[in-house]
Design a binder for these strands. Structure first.
Length: 415
DNA sequence: TCTGGGGTCCTAGGACCC
DNA sequence: TCTGGGGTCCTAGGACCC
């Protein structure tokens, strides 16, 4: 058996941890740049306010209902997330942290009442971190997602749902629309409904082989998982990413090549940190700049860049990419977003060397290690001048709450 | 004043070469 | 009148997740 522990409207719950006065009040959290609503708590959902909609469109409605609005505060969420993960991880030797707000726990070999155990997980996390979670228990990841979804939906279940035999999950699956199944998105929903597959139960009854032929191997896995057959195992060691991206929309439209290059330099720095963390080197990268799809002048161009050798050297990569930005840049356009992606990676310790190829000088490798170790103590202590000083293009976060747990001068005080 | 997320993986199709 | 292969690289965009 497998437990999926998932925080309830995580970002909104984080905003309440140090603001007990907001308990029971409606709260939304906005995406980067205060663009879209990305988290709504139960009270907001009850008002019928939709998620992933532009904030400026819903602002009047939110004001009318006295909804509390927060910019995203990733410093706070990341810190509270790691506390939730620490506490939850103490309940199983085998865990997989799946995203910032959810993790899978293997309960194999546990000789205990699953319902009692799930309740204890929930209660302990609340006591230690003051973040509410729901726990879904089932034999496969896909079913535990459904169990978790059910635990959240029916208040009477008190945040816990156990689907440990076919009889239990079969009756639940009939009530779950196909679009709520993990791995089934908007497009697949349309196509499945055309085939008469409306509920999760309908999908579970399809033959896995024919689903593979009609769609792809992932749907086959979903069908099998809905029947209790494990196809997607717990991965304790995160597989290294095959691609690494860092992209952002700007705080406002920018027109200036040097500002674009500052942003590319900053995003490349971030991508390089992810790259070194997973002990990879980049062979091929891509860089893009674009205008908004809502502006009259649509422009999106990207460029593939081959590195002279497999590298994790921020300085070298920034230099290579910023040269290409110059080629992509057209004067006079209102740029809205830019980004970099490392699309061909190899392992740092498993390089196929050639007698004549260049490779990264070892002093550069050591330099990167030193930079990372300095920045691990205080992020941003040391960075390239090419990132810019003022960074006027950076995103807006006008309604950000304090970083209560990660900045000395923002620690809450008790009067 | 003006506002519209970010990340990973995958694939269709065009350009180019032989 | 319309057709005629195979491989690689690159770009654009889609699908899904949170």
């Amino acid at each position: 058996m497998l437990a999926l522990v998932d925080c309830n409207s995580f970002y909104a719950s984080c905003e309440q941890v140090f603001r007990p006065d907001l308990r029971g009040k409606p709260i939304v959290v906005l995406s980067n740049n205060d663009g879209c609503i990305v988290a709504r708590n139960r009270e907001v959902k009850a008002l019928g306010i939709p998620g992933l909609e532009p904030y400026f469109k819903l602002e009047p409605l939110l004001k009318k209902h006295n909804v509390h609005v927060f910019s995203s505060n990733y410093e706070l969420y990341a810190d509270l997330s790691s506390r939730v993960m620490d506490v939850a991880s103490s309940f199983s030797p085998d865990v997989e942290i799946y995203s910032i707000d959810e993790l899978f726990l293997s309960l194999d070999g546990m000789k205990c009442d699953l319902n009692q155990y799930a309740k204890k997980i929930r209660k302990t996390i609340w006591r230690h971190v003051r973040v509410p979670v729901s726990v879904g228990v089932a034999p496969t990841k896909t079913l535990s997602k459904i169990a978790n979804h059910t635990a959240k939906k029916y208040l009477g279940l008190k945040g816990v749902c156990i689907l440990d035999n076919p009889k239990k999950w079969k009756s639940i699956l009939k009530k779950i629309p196909i679009s709520d199944v993990w791995g089934v998105g908007r497009r697949l929903t349309e196509r499945l409904i055309e085939c008469g597959v409306i509920t999760a139960s309908d999908l579970a009854q399809q033959s896995p082989e024919s689903m593979r032929k009609l769609f792809n191997i992932n749907i086959e896995r979903t069908v099998r998982e809905l029947n209790g057959e494990v196809c997607i195992p717990i991965e304790e060691e995160a597989e290294p990413r095959k691609q690494i991206f860092s992209t952002r929309t700007f705080g406002h439209r920018i027109y200036d090549l040097s500002e674009l290059q500052q942003s590319i330099s900053t995003y490349t720095t971030r991508a390089c940190e992810k790259l070194r963390k997973q002990e990879s080197l980049v062979n091929v990268a891509t860089v893009f700049i674009q205008t908004s799809r809502f502006d009259d002048l649509r422009y999106l161009r990207s460029k593939i860049v081959r590195m002279p050798y497999a590298t994790n050297d921020t300085g070298l990569i920034v230099n290579q990419l910023n040269r290409k930005v110059k080629d992509l840049f057209i004067k006079g356009l209102p740029y809205y977003k830019a980004g970099v992606g490392f699309i061909d990676l190899s392992n740092q310790y498993n390089q196929q060397m050639s007698l004549f190829d260049n490779h990264q000088p070892s002093r550069r490798t050591r330099l990167m290690e030193v930079v990372d170790s300095i920045n691990s103590k205080k992020y941003g202590s040391i960075q390239l001048a090419s990132n810019g000083i003022n960074q006027d293009w950076k995103m807006r976060r006008l309604k950000r709450s304090p970083s209560y747990t990660t900045k000395w001068n923002e620690i809450p005080t008790i009067k």
